[in-house]
């Protein structure tokens, strides 16, 4: 039982760092630019598809990675230049709608190019086995790789934001946008850099997640809602909050999905227990968000 518990906790951490890769970009975009970007999940999907395509053409997982990053970043920069730039000074409603329209278009464009069938990708060579972490606990190396990449990105972001000039501007922008502009900083450029970085991380998350689930249309929306929950729970604009919230929610969600049906089987028939368990487990993160917002209406690590 405890082996199973550790294994699921690791799965939770792996899901959590994937959420963090997405949430970091989203929270910066919202905190600094004041834009709600529903299309962030589409960038995740674009990264997954572009990388998967390149990997299939070249036969190498690692050659797919730069393609995934580049595709997501280019798509992100295009979206920023063509759409988001016009939305900076609009209210949230216009932003929600315009980016909702982008989701519709991105999904359909992917269907036109790749069809509706989910595509299953193979694990990269060298990471297709598992390692013996504890006696009786063999854990897939690829999932460990994702955890390592996620933690490395988190550390890199921390350095970038706390130790570099760009990071200083990002922090300043999140605190007071108008003051940064008044001090003569080219805020337009900063916006573009932040958006591009967020898109890059989304593409990375999408490509890494590909071999674990399936690459399919709608994969972006599934994880987008969870990502928004992470951003809101963590406190909009806070990378640290996004990291903590992503890990908590990733573990909670995975644990509920893994163990709730089993627990419910004690009191009802297996078929009913499975469906009810999955249903309630899916509600878990939303319930957690509602609770957090009721206690701290601006999230756990809200800045001002």
């Amino acid at each position: 039982m405890s082996i199973l518990l550790i294994e699921q906790a690791l799965n939770g951490v792996q899901y959590g760092v994937t959420l963090f890769l997405l949430a970091a970009g989203l929270t910066l975009i919202f905190g600094i630019m004041g834009v709600i970007n529903l299309a962030h999940g589409s960038l995740y999907m674009i990264g997954a598809y572009a990388g998967m395509y390149a990997a299939a053409e070249t036969g190498s997982f690692w050659l797919g990675l730069p393609v995934a990053l580049a595709a997501a970043a280019v798509a992100g920069l295009a979206v920023e230049a063509l759409v988001i730039r016009r939305l900076y000074n609009r209210d949230h409603l216009d932003q929600v709608l315009a980016t909702f329209a982008l989701i519709l278009m991105a999904n359909q464009a992917i269907i036109l190019m790749f069809g509706r069938q989910p595509i299953f990708t193979r694990l990269p060579a060298g990471f297709d086995g598992s390692v013996q972490l504890l006696p009786g606990l063999a854990y897939p190396t690829y999932r460990l790789l994702i955890i390592a990449v996620g933690l490395a990105v988190a550390a890199g972001l921390w350095l970038l934001i706390n130790r570099t000039r760009v990071g200083m501007l990002v922090r300043a922008g999140a605190t007071n946008r108008d003051m940064v502009r008044a001090l003569g900083v080219d805020i337009r450029l900063l916006y573009t850099v932040v958006f591009g970085l967020g898109a890059l991380l989304a593409g990375l998350a999408g490509y890494m997640a590909g071999p674990i689930g399936a690459v399919q249309v709608g994969m972006g929306e599934q994880i987008l809602l969870a990502t928004f929950v992470v951003v809101v729970v963590g406190g909009v604009g806070s990378i640290r909050g996004a990291f903590v919230a992503a890990l908590i929610l990733g573990v909670v969600d995975t644990m509920l999905r893994a163990f709730l049906p089993t627990l419910l089987r004690q009191v009802m028939t297996p078929a009913e227990a499975d469906q009810l368990g999955i249903g309630i487990a899916s509600m878990g993160i939303y319930l957690l968000m509602a609770l957090v917002l009721l206690i701290r209406p601006r999230g756990l690590f809200a800045t001002a």
Binding site: V236, Q275, L276, G279, S282, Y286, L287, M289, A290
Partner: peptide, 22 residues
């Protein structure tokens, strides 16, 4: 934005509730 997200969260909870009601 918190209001937007929390109303979305409650709707999703009801959505999943009805998905699970066999």
């Amino acid at each position: 934005v918190q209001f937007i997200m929390i109303t979305l969260a409650f709707a999703q909870m009801l959505f999943f509730l009805f998905v699970s009601l066999t």
